[in-house]
Design a protein around this nucleic acid. Structure first.
Lengths: 145, 145
DNA sequence: GGAGAAGCTAACATCGGTGTCAGGTTCACG
DNA sequence: CGTGAACCTGACACCGATGTTAGCTTCTCC
């Protein structure tokens, strides 16, 4: 498929797809005229790349781990070097910290939302239990999915 | 306390503290000479601000929700407007999406790490369990805390 | 009061993925 | 063959929290 279709199917802009290629993250054959031609596997790959970007990894890091992932196009194909493993472990720690920050911030937001939703103005005793988890819902807050 | 101590105690640079003040996130009295003088409560506040920044909120958003949070210096003091609640709800959704991305990316990293740790080169059965710790341990992956 | 540590303001740089525009080429279909 | 859609390269802009430097003032302690 060509870049337009890949962009449409992945929700990633053409600009970004070209950038991914430039960073060595995404390969593409070329037509005689120079147009990019992507394989079907590119879709999954782009999704993967997007996830890793969303997780705060840099393109250079993604570049290094991509060959170590079992992609849609088969096996892992390569194994991470000890040095890379060390880097990934650090990255993992960073991700954990970020997740914790996100969870705490989400709680803060929930509390603010709950307060606004549960106490319309002021001078109201907390009769029922509120500010449990999500705003206005019983469930504490653990439906990340 | 002055800015140096606050920076030390919160782990946030002086530069950032000044920036927070400029954005209206952090108040400070001034000495006659113009030096900032922070209250004890500033420590907690800065930590809060940092968490929210780490969660990807913009200073403008933080600015709006700060008065609605029950801070160390007492009660919520203010209630979120419906408009703000709407915005925070959207923010919350974004946070959830980000958390999911992080969890998935973490899994990917764990897999790469585990593969590298568990299969030194190739053609080797995983006999003993090695490199305890996070990756390659039994638990699938759910110890965010 | 003098000296060095600590603060102050202001301005510019950075990082990196993405948006966008310009000017030109290729593709596909009638 | 012609034309409009799709694609190409290259370059510049942006966002926004933080780093860094410069030049000066204030504070603190001897």
């Amino acid at each position: 498929m060509r870049i337009g279709e890949l962009a449409r199917r992945t929700g990633v802009s053409e600009r970004s797809l070209r950038y991914y290629e430039q960073q060595g993250l995404l390969a593409a054959r070329r037509t005689d005229g120079g147009h990019r031609e992507y394989s079907e596997a590119a879709v999954d790959r782009v999704v993967h790349i997007q996830e890793l970007f969303a997780a705060g990894l840099h393109s250079r890091t993604i570049y290094k781990i991509l060959p170590c992932m079992r992609d849609s196009d088969g096996g892992p194909s390569e194994t991470a070097t000890p040095l890379l493993v060390e880097e990934l472990t650090a990255e993992r720690a960073r991700i954990d910290r970020t997740i914790n920050d996100l969870l705490r911030s989400r709680e803060v937001l929930d509390e603010v939302i709950a307060t606004a939703s549960g106490e319309p103005s002021s001078g109201e005793q907390s009769t029922s239990e509120q500010s449990a988890g999500n705003p206005s819902s019983r469930k504490p807050s653990a439906e990340v999915a």
